[in-house]
Amino acid sequence: MKGIAEIHDFVQSLLTRIGDDGPLANQDSLLVSGRLQSIDAVEIVVFLEENFAIDFAEIGFDREQIDSINAIYALTQGAGNRN
């Protein structure tokens, strides 16, 4: 099971790719704040599907679930509990 550090690294790599080198805290808003866009949210979805076997079609999808590193981590912990 990957931890919060891996999620942080992944999100940081997305931000770096779009030229956002600003500081990134685990509670920072990613999508509502506009730092990441819909296409980046797609990358997060695929990352979660591939690494944590999360099926959003089954559990339902809302961007708030992946709006911060903490939220993503909480989601992965929920997925872990379900599995």
Binding site: S38, V42, V45, F56, A57, F61
Partner: peptide, 15 residues
Amino acid sequence: KELLVDLFFYPVFLR
């Protein structure tokens, strides 16, 4: 764009 993404893109992409 958000309307198209939220109501069409994600429902299709996730399924």
